[in-house]
């Protein structure tokens, strides 16, 4: 009996051994970098670009410390996008170009696609739409298989078509992106697709359809807790409600958009929401409220 107990105990203790294994690959620094990236993404989605830049920089340094090229490219890409969102174009261009250069050396198709898309977005933001189109198209064509980037590339190509007022083509591209995103369950991107589809309906003066799509976009963004998207959706819904002469409803949407904008430190959205709130207060004959929002509007920095 004693022998049985000893054997059973030995099995249990061996099962719970805390002895380090012999040939072990260490991932501490790479895991640390992954943590930094995840934290940076959190700040990025909340619109806190300064904090996001700090964490992306730490991730970049950690990856460089162990010469993890793949991680370095990804961290640099995130850093470049944060610079882009913060309006620091030179920094964004430097980081995204470096990432692209490293990716061309690495020759990893998925990573190369990401860096091409980022450069496309950079050049689009800088107003160089032909170069943006080239990067988006190359990225899409060089895709070996469908991944998370595929619907984004469709969407971004749709944006370029939208800007050229090729609404049918843009609608097709956004719809395709929406289909892929729904299949992949990318709630945040679904909101963006629906938002742009609503914009197309608005351009074609289909206000009711646009309102319906904007509401769907808001629901998707709220499900994903995508704060920047929620702010955009509320602003669009406010605008559409105003177009439909539903002033109290529009007022409500802009007030909510103002709340989101102030939390995200989004000056442009704050200014637009306050301007609309002033006008809507006047339209609803509430001069006191209009004066209050006007005072807030004047306090905003230029």
């Amino acid at each position: 009996m004693k022998i049985l107990i000893v054997v059973f105990s030995a099995l249990v203790f061996l099962g719970c051994s805390s002895l380090p294994r012999g040939a072990q690959e260490v991932f501490d620094t790479r895991n640390e970098a992954a943590n930094f990236l995840r934290l940076g993404d959190g700040f990025f989605s909340q619109g806190q670009m300064d904090s996001a830049i700090q964490f992306y920089t730490e991730a970049l340094r950690a990856n460089q410390r162990v010469d993890f090229v793949e991680g370095t490219i990804l961290a640099r890409s995130s850093l470049g996008r944060a610079f882009l969102r913060a309006g620091r174009m030179q920094d964004a261009q430097r980081e995204l170009n470096d990432a692209y250069f490293d990716a061309t050396l690495l020759q990893e198709p998925a990573i190369l696609g990401v860096t091409r898309n980022n450069l496309g977005e950079l050049y689009y933001t800088m107003g160089n739409k032909p170069l943006a189109l080239e990067f988006f198209t190359t990225a899409l064509e060089s895709q070996e298989r469908e991944d998370n980037l595929t619907p984004i590339l469709y969407h971004n190509l749709g944006i370029l078509a939208f800007d050229e007022r090729q609404f049918d083509q843009a609608q097709n591209l956004f719809t395709e992106a929406l289909r892929l995103n729904r299949r992949q369950g990318n709630a945040t991107e679904i909101g963006a697709n629906l938002y742009m589809l609503a914009q197309i309906e608005l351009r074609q003066q289909n206000i009711a359809a646009a309102y319906d799509l904007a509401q769907q976009a808001l629901e998707a963004d709220q499900r994903a807790e995508n704060s920047p998207g929620i702010g955009d959706d509320l602003e669009l819904l406010g605008f559409l409600s105003r177009r439909m002469n539903r002033y109290p409803q529009a007022f409500n949407y802009f007030r909510r958009a103002l709340g989101v904008a102030t939390q995200l430190d989004n000056l442009e959205l704050t200014r637009n929401a306050l301007g609309n709130l002033v006008e809507l207060s006047q339209l609803m004959n509430d001069d006191e409220l209009a004066a209050r929002y006007r005072e807030l509007l004047f306090r905003l920095p230029n």
Binding site: N117, E189, F239
Partner: peptide, 17 residues
Amino acid sequence: ERETQDTQYNSIRVRSF
């Protein structure tokens, strides 16, 4: 043992009315 690293990429939105 190794956590995956990913980068940010979002769809662009055009905010003009």
